[in-house]
Design a protein around this nucleic acid. Structure first.
Lengths: 109, 109
DNA sequence: ATAATACGTAACTTTTAAGTTACTCAAACG
DNA sequence: CGTTTGAGTAACTTAAAAGTTACGTATTAT
């Protein structure tokens, strides 16, 4: 897994880029076929693809003059790790609450 | 869970806001105490907090003239759901590969 | 009652992101 | 070998985000 050169969080901040990832979850697509789903110029699509690639969300395979974009796990992993950190926070918060409740019920005895 | 009025993905696109969430995972903080960790004016901090709140990442409790910010799960859930969708994609991709490999080994027999 | 504190709002500036058009290049096609 | 097709780059415009200062308003402290 190569170090991403673009912030994953910023990459998915744009709705068009999120839509692109959704489309790519159905099928590998070229720049043009991807662009058919959007109301924007091809260079704009190109830019978005570049960002998604730099952030590790897609891999690109050049076949002749076409560029085939495929979903890649790296970017998603990065996000998952971030969320996992906070997940731990909730778990420990629950544990604290649990301990608190246990102590209370013990006091009643 | 109230419908968020701000896009969760955009909310965490900003590094300062992500740092704020990290800080809040350690402790509930007021606007000012939060701001101490940043090199920006207090109104700027206020704006970020507003966004995090609107996106469902924090809850705010007014105590006198202070505003206490606490981490909230809603925003994180939203993100997790999004990632989960793609997780399914990887799983099904793996299954397809598995089936493919099984068929190949059967042909050998 | 007055001063200090904690914060929000408004108006504005600056920065950055997203989009455009015009152009270029290389691969495929006839 | 000229032409079409798929895509990248450069220069620019537009729009949105992030930040600022100046000011207003409750709440707390003296």
């Amino acid at each position: 897994m190569v170090q991403p050169s673009f912030d994953a969080f910023q990459a998915i901040a744009d709705p068009s880029r999120r839509k692109m990832l959704r489309l790519l979850s159905k099928d590998s697509l070229t720049i043009n076929s991807l662009g058919e789903h959007f109301d924007m110029s091809r260079p704009a699509v190109s830019k978005h693809v570049k960002i998604l690639h730099a952030a590790g969300f897609i891999s690109i395979q050049d076949i002749g003059r076409e560029r085939h974009c495929t979903l890649k796990q790296d970017g998603f992993h990065h996000l998952q790790e971030w969320i996992d950190y906070f997940d731990k926070f909730w778990v420990s918060k629950l544990k604290k609450l649990e301990t608190l409740l246990n102590n209370k019920s013990q006091n009643k005895k």
